[in-house]
Every structure is written in structure tokens, then in C-alpha cells.
Amino acid sequence: MAEAPLHQMTLRPADPADWPAIAALTQGCCPRTTDVPERLETWLLGEAGAEVVGAVELEPVGDIGFLRCVAVDRRHRSAGLGKELAAAVESFARSKGMNELCLLTTAAVPFFAARGYRVDNRADAPAAVQATPAFQAGNPDTAVFMTLRLDGRANHAAHIRSATGEDANAILDIYGPIVRHTALSSETEPPSVDEMRARIERALPELPWLVSHDERGTVSGYAFASRHRERAAYRWTVDTSICVRQGCREQGIGRRLGDELLKQLVQRGYRQAFARVVLPNEASIRLHRALGFESVGVFKSAAFKNGAWRDVSWWQRQLQDLPPQPAEPVPSPQAGPAAPNTRPAGA
């Protein structure tokens, strides 16, 4: 079958006769389609010529549209109909007075990010959206919450600031799944919110801890430094860690966090920075190379997690010259006396 030209795409409300087409389109890619006939008013059909090639479920929640499903006929995906269908839905939502679209997805983050959707903290979703059965059914560890402004306001702008104890929840939202589902952290259980808050507050008087956030304050990543070792001779050396929220990666956020972290370490008088990368992790290796780190070795089978022994590579960057007698590192200008630091999230 020839691929339908994009300009032939039209969008219309579904009717009862469309149920078989919706069921066929959404099979295997959208949950809970068995009750489609009961909520048929939330479905829209995308047509190219006389053929139904896409289906969208758009649930109105006040002035927000909750995209529960976006499905395109597999035969036509290479023709760009997914983008055309998404654009048609966004236009339809604006015409109905919706100011924002939101969705949960596990596999389509890059697709929606390319359209300007941003990853948001699930806890910051409007209460009416959180109350919907579809939102509650989304796996909090794997389903990424994304939003798109439709009213002309900026949807994404990354800013970096010093973290506070109040960021503990947002940081755990990023760090918790890493602990539970990957070997990238040596912790086996995520810390509590109180423990995370305490880690941040203990670190800040002496070492930087940064968060990246958008114009609404949603945290997309964090970076921090901790003491490399506790003994006095190591006081010019730090370990570093950078974590970016799933769905916000490959957008330069980690690089900006890392650049600012290293800049602040230089300003405070630190001389050497190390980073630990559990293998395999090509994304982290690319990031550390971009930040000027060099590989200095691999500890073979140094950690056991998730049923396997893990190699751990170490990376080093010299931050500034190494004088015969370096000046003492200085704490943050706005902080009080230095306090003992423990190794926080990501260690």
C-alpha cells in the first residue's frame, strides 16, 4: 500500500462503528482499550484519505487535556503520520480551550520531547489529573509524566541553582528508580525523604549541591560533590556525581550541571575531581569525557548488585594547578562553618 500524503490527514470524533478500528490500532501499545465503547466520546480518529490510520484518546480534565493514548497504524509510521497526528491533536485541543496537554509514557519520551513536551515531576501534576484512573494506573517507576503548554507560554527553560533540603522529594523522584532498578548506585534501597534532606543539608556548608529546574521549578537533574576520603591529606580532592531525570537526558542538562559544579569547585580551591562509573554506561562515559575527565582505571568486579558482579571505572579531572603548598579549600560564601560530609545519593 502506498504511504498516504501527510496533507490528507484529518481528525474527527469517533463513533460506535469505529470501535473495531480503535481496538486494532491500539492493540499492544495502549492500556485498557477494552472499555473503549463506554468512553467513546474521548476518542479521535485520524484519517488519511478514506483510511483510518491513527487513534487518539484525549480526556478533558478542566482546561488540561490528558493524552491517554496516541496510536498510528504500523504500516504508516515511516510516513511521519505520528507527527501529523500529534500536531492535529494539539490543534484540536487548542480549539477546545485547553491550555495544556499531559501524558504518561514509557517508550515514547524522545518522540514527545522532540515536539516540545517536557518531563515533569509526577507529584507536581494537577490534582484532578492525579485523580484519574489512568494516571493512578501508571507505574511510578517507569511511566514518565510529560506536559506541553498550548497557550503560548514557554514550556521549557533550564536553570541551575543551589539545592536546598526542600528539594529532597524531587531528587528522590530521580534517584529512587536508579537505586531500585539499576546497578548505577551502590545503594540497594533508596533513602527516605528525611535522610535525603539531611544529606543535602550536611553537604551544603562545605561542598556544592546543584539542581537544574525549569520555569515552574520542576527539577530535571542534580549534581553534587562529596569528600573523596575523610583523612586530611585528601581535603583538596572530591568525588562528583551527576544524575538527570529519565526523559530529560541527551538534552545537555548533565553537561550544564557538570560545568557549573566544576566551576564552583575551582572557586572553592579544590584541585582534583573524581567520578565513579559502574560499567556498562556509555552515556555517563560520554558525559565525563565532555567535561574533561580522563579514565584512570577499572576496579574489576568491585560491586555485586542485581544478581551480578559489576566493574567500576574511575575518572579524574585536574581542576587547576598543583602548587607546592595549596591554599585551604573554602566553604560556600553564604554558608556557615564547614560540617562533616557524608557520601550522598549516587555514591
Rank of each mutant, 00 (worst) to 15 (best):
R161E: 03
L261S: 08
H76G: 01
T342H: 09
R229H: 05
L11D: 11
L6E: 05
H288D: 09
N155M: 05
P326M: 03
A107K: 14
I171L: 13
H156T: 05
K305S: 11
D214S: 13
G165E: 01
G152S: 09
P5Y: 07
P60L: 09
Q318N: 11
A50V: 03
A79W: 07
T240S: 10
G165S: 08
L58Y: 04
C102G: 03
L45R: 08
R115K: 15
E187I: 00
V179E: 04
P126T: 08
W19F: 13
Q316L: 09
T142E: 01
E47G: 01
R245T: 04
F304P: 00
L67A: 15
E3S: 14
F135H: 07
E166L: 00
T33R: 03
V129R: 08
L207I: 02
F224H: 07
S332T: 00
S185K: 05
H228F: 12
G54V: 04
R180I: 03
N169Q: 12
G269M: 01
R122D: 05
W209G: 07
A131T: 09
H159D: 06
A273S: 15
H213S: 03
R94E: 12
D15F: 08
R227D: 06
T105A: 06
G247H: 08
I174T: 06
W19L: 15
A93M: 08
F299L: 15
Q251S: 13
G346L: 11
G217T: 04
E187S: 11
A87M: 05
D124I: 04
A163M: 06
E41C: 08
L103K: 13
V278K: 00
V330W: 01
R197L: 02
R317D: 11
S241D: 00
A14W: 07
P5S: 05
E100P: 01
A335Y: 05
R271C: 04
G116D: 14
